[in-house]
Design a protein around this nucleic acid. Structure first.
Length: 895
RNA sequence: GCCCGCGUGGUGGAAUGGUAGACACAGGGGACUUAAAAUCCCUAGGCGCAAGCCGUGCCGGUUCGAGUCCGGCCGCGGGCACCA
């Protein structure tokens, strides 16, 4: 290391350069250390670009098939090119990088790619807001983000990068679509969308605010359009069953998916109607609780049910009610949280068990046409929604079952004002109105008995249904993958020929008016019919962006292939061994991807093993930051940037002395002014500090709060490590008295850090590295032992802080690039301790501890514990009731 | 509303059902320095002079032993099919 450059990495980096420079000059002028080697400071600005260049030149992270070497595919969920990387990205990619670098060091051939999920609404919104083009906006953003990501020193094979808006990518996606179409995996049907009648455009759910279009403010309507659907529901059973085999997925994600797919066993049967219009003499209903049939008090149908639509035609009251229901948004959340409303149709149905018992038929706003048959019977006593509805419309409430004998407790019958009684189906309850099976049964048993009874008596049939609906992929938007079909007057819907792919988006479009620019493009729609050659029109809908992200991981295995995938590459690289991303994708993205890989297998684009594409999944938490706020005169919050706030004694103040309220751990958002920009962190402290910090402190699956103090501490620690490495490099060749102790600790650290990384306990691994750094700093060891310890420390830190580690490696005389060095192994014999400390509990509370040889017998341990003065004191001359000795763990004396 | 999580010192957090608070931040004290910065050392859950007592959101349960398992409640977060 030569002389220091002008730029210095001082404690508080965001200081003006002039001051730093002055200080540096002053320091360099007077020798700080009069003895020993010249002491250089840790300078990430210098070493980080140096090592990044070294890795680049050596093509260290270029992934190539190497038969015979175990492959490892690690992938972080690719980003949307919003324009700037976010500290959450840094955390996500750093975690992936730790895994990637660790796997490289343990002899794996690693694939670690990066790309961009580049289609979507923000690009169009930006174009509408500031007049640019979505394409320019997107590619500019990608350039910026790549520039921001590269300095992080991620071990990514950048040669495989692509964006989903590249025609080379979406053209292959169109080929997939055509193959799916041919295979019968895609079809068209009507579906409702949010329609803005003023802007004449389809709105996404997030563009609907309180039932109004976000730009026009117009009341949103539901409108039916013919749209394309993937038959994901055909795979419901398989997608559900296969969850069992995903051993390395978080249980919570599997539970969420299982609930989403929602397999249920129930009874489907028909009520016969009275006074209903022709063709509606039966109403089919589906129920998962046929055991409550004797508690039925009304029948509810969806406003979109055929009977409701029929009545609507010549009954203005019904028409108005249905119209009102349709003003509620299309999302399940809105339907469920809206006030329960119904309209009595005047039609009644006969109860299947007693034809003299008539139930009223209501059109109800909380019944979905998409689920079951779009009609239900209401049992208010055992369903909170039905109870709310029954109380509102003064319908009867009749309890069917009550808590089992002896567990009644404070049970209040729902008809007496109690809440709806909905115990878990595995719980045994007492049936007050049984019609099948015993009086005391579990809900599950009762449902089975009820289905059997109904089937025997010809009332209905047991059926299995799924909540999972088919995946609607049509979007009435420009910035997405065009659906490659053509509408021909003579031939109908005709797939585009594969040789005509990609169907490329036209560049000459404008966003000065709402609606889909593809619809109003002068020529783009006009094409000859691929079948008969007559003039025809292109489909102007584009694909849901979830399609783009449902197979990008497969494309990374052969990103430039002329077909969607290359089988040899897919065979070699698939599956993704470790997938890392946010929990917010637990359901949709992951479920759609699991469907897509199944469909890609059926159409010959992926091997059988890739039906489940992600062998292991890790869901990481968010990065949060405190919000600094004051209140204006009206009491509304005013937000302040962290750099405008001074922290004094855990309170915060503005420059003018106003005290600021600190809201801790809030999700970062621009409007709250609590966003931390990774770029400034990297330029202030270096990438290694940023990487080290986002991994320390918080377990990866949990949120981590970014604090300036924490980042400084991380930087201080790395400087210390660097100093220790310098010291070790310059130390003599004599042995020291603490050599063995240091090396013992080193081996334990190797073991613990390895475990930490293997189990995604990055924060624990880092805590261990802190401890070992302390040990090394204090060790009374000789030069050789210190150098060995420092080299190992560099290796153990290399997945987290690769540049610093590489620098230490070269300082200490390591061979070649550390990035190519094998992972250290712990010598088990160095880790064995001869004695163990056992805590002694008295009645479960720790009162003392004894140190015993590791292999001491249980009886001897017990005798030693009993002889201990605090045990004797507790016994007070008596005998213990019980003594539990867990060898190597604990002693508990019960007195 | 429904599904899934999470809740531990002043703060971020650690803890295969077995010593609650590792490691770190902020704090307090000290060393070095003319001084400051940097660095290093010590201290540190609460209450108590102490012996000791109390402590993992709240209430209850299982267990020799519960932060961890079970039930109920409260609070916060994620998802709810056109945000990505």
């Amino acid at each position: 290391m030569g002389h220091e450059p002008a730029r210095h990495w001082t404690r508080r980096a965001p200081r003006p350069i002039t001051r730093q420079t002055r200080k540096a000059a002053c320091r360099d002028g007077a020798p700080v250390h009069l003895t020993g080697p010249p002491m250089s400071r840790y300078s990430p600005a210098e070493i980080e670009p140096k090592w990044q260049q070294a890795w680049d030149e050596a093509l260290t992270f270029r992934a190539e098939r190497k038969e015979g070497k175990p492959k490892y595919y690690v992938l972080e969920m690719f980003p949307y090119p919003s324009g700037r990387i976010h500290i959450g990205h840094v955390r996500n990619y750093t975690m992936g990088d730790v895994v990637a670098r660790y796997k490289r060091a343990t002899g794996h051939n690693v694939l670690h790619p990066m790309g961009f999920d580049a289609f979507g609404m923000p690009a169009e919104n930006a174009a509408m807001a500031s007049g640019g083009h979505p394409k320019t906006w997107t590619y500019d953003n990608i350039d910026t983000m790549v520039d921001q990501m590269k300095p992080l020193g991620l071990s990514i094979d950048w040669s495989r990068m692509f964006a989903t808006c590249d025609p080379e990518y979406y053209g292959q996606q169109q080929a997939l679509f055509l193959d799916f179409l041919e295979q019968g995996l895609v079809y068209r049907k009507n579906a409702v969308v949010n329609w803005d009648p003023v802007d004449m455009t389809v709105l996404a759910n997030e563009q609907v605010e309180d039932g109004r279009g976000w730009r026009s403010g117009a009341l949103v309507e539901r409108r039916e359009l013919t749209q394309w659907f993937f038959r994901i529901s055909d795979f419901a059973e398989d997608l559900l069953e296969a969850l069992d085999g995903l051993d390395d997925w978080p249980a919570k994600v599997k539970t969420m998916q299982a609930n989403w797919i929602g397999r249920s066993r129930g009874l489907q049967f028909a009520f016969s109607t009275t006074d209903a219009p022709e063709g509606h003499d039966r109403i089919e209903v589906y129920t998962t609780r046929p055991d409550t049939l004797l508690g039925a008090s009304f029948v509810g149908i969806s406003p979109d049910h055929p009977l409701a639509k029929h009545l609507e035609r010549d009954n203005p009251e019904v028409a108005e009610f249905c119209a009102e229901c349709r003003r509620v948004g299309t999302s399940e959340e809105e339907l469920e949280t809206a006030e329960k409303k119904g309209l009595n149709t005047g039609i009644t149905v006969r109860h299947p068990f007693d034809t003299s018992w008539e139930l009223p038929v209501y059109i109800a706003n909380f019944i979905l046409m998409d689920y079951g048959t779009g009609a239900i019977f209401g049992c208010p006593a055992h369903d909170p929604r039905d109870l709310e509805f029954a109380r509102k419309y003064e319908l009867p409430v009749q309890t069917v079952f009550a808590p089992a004998m002896g567990e009644e407790g404070t049970f209040i019958l729902p008809e007496d004002g109690g809440p709806a009684y909905v115990p878990p189906k595995v719980e045994t309850v007492r049936y007050l109105k049984p019609f099948a099976g015993a009086e005391a049964m579990t809900g599950d048993e009762a449902v089975d008995a009820a289905i059997a009874f109904c089937e025997e008596n010809g009332v209905g049939q047991g059926v299995t249904k799924f909540r999972l609906r088919d995946w609607g992929l049509s979007r009435q938007r420009y910035w997405g993958c065009p659906i490659p079909v053509v509408h021909c007057e003579a031939c109908g819907v005709v797939p585009e020929k594969k040789e005509n792919l990609p169907v490329v988006l036209p560049d000459d479009v404008s966003f000065d008016q709402p609606g889909n620019p593809l619809d109003r493009h002068p020529t783009w729609r006009d094409v000859p019919c691929p079948s008969c050659g007559a003039p025809a029109r292109r489909e102007t809908d584009t694909m849901d962006t979830f399609v783009d992200s449902s197979w990008y991981f497969a494309r990374f295995t052969a990103p430039r292939a002329e077909t969607p995938t290359d089988m040899a590459d897919a065979e070699y690289w698939m599956n993704v061994d470790q997938y890392i991303g946010g929990i917010e994708h637990a359901i949709l993205h992951l479920l759609y991807s699991r469907f897509f890989t199944r469909a890609m297998h059926l159409t010959g684009h992926l091997p059988e093993k890739s039906r489940e594409p992600f062998d292991a999944l890790f869901t990481q938490g968010m990065v949060t930051h405190a919000i600094f706020q004051t209140k204006d005169k009206a009491g509304r919050p005013v937000y302040h940037f962290p750099e405008d706030v001074e922290l004094r004694d855990s309170s915060a103040f503005l420059k003018d002395g106003t005290e600021v309220e600190i809201v801790p751990s809030a999700k970062m958002s621009k409007s709250k002014k609590n966003v931390v920009d990774p770029v400034s962190i990297v330029s202030d402290y270096g990438a290694d500090t940023a990487r080290w910090f986002v991994l320390s402190d918080s377990p990866p699956e949990r949120d981590v709060e970014w604090t300036a103090a924490g980042a400084e501490a991380a930087h201080r620690h790395l400087s210390r490590v660097y100093r220790l490495a310098m010291e070790a490099a310059g130390a003599g060749d004599d042995a020291g008295s603490g050599d063995e102790a240091l090396l013992r600790e080193m081996h334990k650290t190797v073991h613990d850090v390895t475990q930490g990384i293997e189990s995604f306990g990055f924060n624990a691994a880092i805590a261990r590295l802190y401890a070992f750094t302390s040990t090394l700093a204090k060790a009374d060891a000789g030069g050789p032992a210190k150098r060995q310890a420092a080299l190992t420390l560099a290796q153990l830190m290399s997945p987290m802080t690769p540049h610093l580690a590489e620098e230490m490696w070269s300082l200490l005389g390591g061979e070649g690039l550390l990035a190519d060095a094998p992972w250290p192994t712990a010598d088990e014999t160095m880790m064995v301790e001869s004695t163990v400390t056992l805590p002694i509990q008295i009645n479960g509370k720790r009162r003392a501890e004894i140190e015993v040889p590791k292999d001491m017998g249980k009886d001897e341990v017990e005798a030693m514990a009993m002889a201990h003065e605090s045990v004797q004191r507790a016994l007070d001359g008596g005998q213990p009731k019980k003594v539990i000795v867990v060898p190597g763990r604990i002693i508990n004396v019960v007195v």
